[in-house]
Nucleic acid binder design. Structure first.
Lengths: 88, 88
DNA sequence: TTGCCGTTTGGCGTAATGGCCAAATGATTA
DNA sequence: TAATCATTTGGCCATTACGCCAAACGGCAA
């Protein structure tokens, strides 16, 4: 976790399963790079994969991970508020 | 985030403010190392610091980060269940 | 079998991170 | 001011993470 591409992928997977090709197109990196990120998430138990035909579909296994992103947003908002307070 | 020492420190800070010396003793690493971790957490907006006398006290600024740890535990439990299922 | 598509893995160079030591900073006391 | 304690910062080295390319793997169709 903590990597922008992985965060982005998890957010996308929260909307439903996606194949590697879709995630690759969204992230805009090399397929191998995306595959490795997914491998990390899979080993961490955050996503699960299912092979159908020649494609592999990933899905979010731990919905509570989204709470984390909500928290991150809260942090960012707090930071923004602080910075504007410092500026003004 | 994502680093064991930082996770440990955030968990500890969730119980109340701690000075650098306390966190250093708990983590068991060099003071400078702990200070750098705290600096990372501070820049990320996760903790805040307050200097009182010659000591600096850190406190958790974003309680929702704890939801993340609950989620992590859930992930670990899910993983453990899966592994035992594979084994059994 | 051959060829193609989707995906994964290995390798390599580069960038970032973590850890310690040493030095610098700031507060306190003598 | 000098000395001391608590903390931070800089330097250096070892380790890890990223990202791309190339190669390997598995499924599908001809």
């Amino acid at each position: 976790m903590g990597h922008p591409s992985r965060v982005y992928m998890v957010e996308e997977l929260s909307r439903g399963e996606r194949c590697v090709c879709e995630l690759t197109e969204m992230v805009g990196a090399d397929v191998s790079t995306v595959s490795k990120h997914l491998s990390v998430l899979k080993n961490a138990g955050i996503v699960s994969d299912e092979k159908r035909g020649s494609q592999v579909f990933y899905s979010l296994r731990v919905p509570c991970i989204l709470n984390f992103f909500l928290c991150v947003e809260e942090v960012l908002k707090a930071n923004a508020a602080e910075h504007s307070a410092l500026a003004g």
